[in-house]
């Protein structure tokens, strides 16, 4: 869980290209001579590292940004490569909205991401959606930076990945 959050924040930093701290993305213990660094191909970790597992939205918006489309395209490419993988896209919101409105907004975000993946050829039967509204923040702060991270669609592999 901690790892996932760190990865998500790292990915966000990269997407925003704000040169803040891309070193947080993943720890790479590449000192020995044994296996090559990085996650096993087809694993959850591979998916997260290869395509990123969150796309981000503007305030009260479910429109996909250019960065979000890029990220989803990478997700789609990875999912094409591993056709037995099934995913759930979870829609999340920042805290600046009421609980119920945000549940509806999160559903829109999850479906916007799903629709884009389907448009890129991913079978809709491989994708479920869920909304957590503002219940699943990845950054607990109350700041513009935290809010921008908390407004996301989070792609979670539910089955079919290489372990």
């Amino acid at each position: 869980m901690k790892f996932k959050i760190a990865a998500a924040i790292g990915a966000a930093a990269m997407i925003a290209a704000c040169a803040s701290k891309p070193e947080e993305v993943v720890a790479t213990p590449s000192t020995g001579t044994t296996a090559p660094a990085g996650p096993t191909a087809g694993s959850v970790g591979d998916f997260q590292q290869t395509s990123g597992d969150r796309v981000f939205y503007a305030f009260d918006s479910y429109a996909l940004t250019g960065e979000a489309r890029n990220s989803l395209s990478q997700q789609a490419a990875w999912l094409q490569a591993y056709p037995s993988v099934k995913i759930q896209v979870a829609g999340n919101c920042d805290e600046r909205g009421t609980r119920e409105y945000n549940l509806a907004l999160g559903a829109r975000r999850a479906n916007a991401a799903k629709d884009y993946l389907v448009g890129l050829g991913i079978d809709p039967s491989r994708i479920t959606t869920i909304s957590y509204g503002k219940e699943r923040p990845v950054d607990p702060r109350s700041s513009e930076e935290a809010w921008s991270l908390n407004r996301n669609a989070h792609t979670v592999i539910v089955s079919g990945a290489v372990s």
Binding site: E100, L103, A104, A107, A110, N111, T129, S131
Partner: peptide, 25 residues
């Protein structure tokens, strides 16, 4: 789809709620 935002009617005989389907609530 997702159902949420429930609330009883004042006579207690009904529940109002929101149903979300394909992103629309």
């Amino acid at each position: 789809g997702m159902t949420f935002a429930p609330r009883f009617s004042p006579d207690g005989a009904q529940v109002l709620m929101t149903l979300e389907q394909n992103g629309n609530s």
